[in-house]
Design a protein around this nucleic acid. Structure first.
Lengths: 202, 202
DNA sequence: TTATTTTATTAAACTGGTTTAATCAGTTTC
DNA sequence: GAAACTGATTAAACCAGTTTAATAAAATAA
């Protein structure tokens, strides 16, 4: 039973990869074979500060949030939900201890591939290297639009946009994490919500 | 004479590429052959809104700034100076008209490779594809640290950091562009500078 | 179910920026 | 060398956020 479900997630991962570029069936299956499933319970951490980051991850189900402690304050950089790749890239690339937490905000299933398996495969296969490039390019573009909005939009606009683009997030994640993600205090976000609710009625 | 100078810049570009990954001499020379030099005079635009972005660029000399007009205001996203790659990636990737300007803040020399030449070479060569992936990864990490600072640092800290990391920029670029890059008005930046100068004396 | 803890809202005082407009200093242009 | 621009500073009024602290509401545990 569990193995059936597990197989479904690998199917999603497979489709995700194929959405970037063509990869031969055998090669792709071999690649998928490197992934191991990790179940992360709500509140558990996948990575904490000081740890090395030796894997690249894929969220099959659930939500992982990526944050750091800055003078005792949680600073959320990103939420990773279903069907997206993630890792702590700075630590992963530089092979230095992480400064971040990767924590599950709900019961979560991720698939992990080790850096050595990943890099070796990239070296051996042009197709996989290409997948690596294109997925990195997509990641760049996503973070780019974020910088764009950070410099062009007000906090209220960014909140409304989040509400529109990722409506699920506000259901599954506490509001103070959303506030942190938006670069606000919980108090500040509450004021914005109030302002919106007032301007909407009437 | 000009051709000698020109050759030097290609040498820099060559070394830049080799800093990411090994590429066979012949292949690399063939790749370099696709680049054409473009001289951009101070104040000239390489790209403006509405244009298609069909090249990936390398700054050999000078400074290109990347901005958009938002309600008549210049919003600067980045300054590209010597030995760095750039393009308007969203437009380049999606093949849609640009929303941005790429303008020279001083007389500038860039090298440009067309998207078709670039993509074809990536398809044909695993080594070049790898270069593409690793340079994209580096670009991601740079913009990532920027998002990190946008959420963790004050405007004053970001100004001081820019002063430290890219001291040349404040000499070669007018202050109101720096202000925009930092997400401030010229007035705001002036106040910050005043605050700093006061706290430094005594 | 009640008690406890966690999360969200509200209020009041404050702060680091904005906007607008005036002034000042350097550069260009003629 | 005066006139006309461009860029930087200053001042005053303003505003969207913060901080701190109290309260309310919701979730969790006993």
């Amino acid at each position: 039973m569990t193995s059936t479900v597990s197989k479904d997630y690998l199917k999603n991962l497979k489709n995700k990869i194929l959405s970037y570029t063509e990869v031969d069936e055998d090669l792709l299956n071999h690649w998928l074979g490197y992934y191991k499933r990790i179940d992360v319970k709500k509140g558990d951490t996948l990575i904490s500060p000081g740890q090395m980051v030796e894997h690249f991850y894929y969220v099959a189900k659930g939500c992982i949030y990526y944050y750091k402690l800055e003078e005792g304050e949680q600073k959320v950089l990103e939420f990773y939900t279903e069907d997206i790749f993630f890792t702590d890239l700075p630590a992963y690339v530089k092979e230095t201890p992480s400064d971040y937490y990767l924590k599950a905000s709900e019961n979560t299933i991720v698939y992990a591939i080790s850096k050595s398996d990943g890099e070796n495969s990239f070296k051996k296969s042009h197709q996989l290297e290409r997948f690596g490039r294109l997925s990195m390019q997509e990641a760049f573009m996503k973070i780019f639009t974020r910088v764009e909005r950070l410099s062009n939009r007000t906090n209220e606009e960014r909140y409304l946009r989040l509400l529109e683009k990722r409506p699920d997030l506000l259901q599954r994640v506490p509001q103070y994490l959303i506030a942190s993600y938006l670069g606000l205090t919980p108090v500040g976000l509450s004021k914005i919500r109030k302002r919106i609710s007032i301007s909407q009625q009437s």
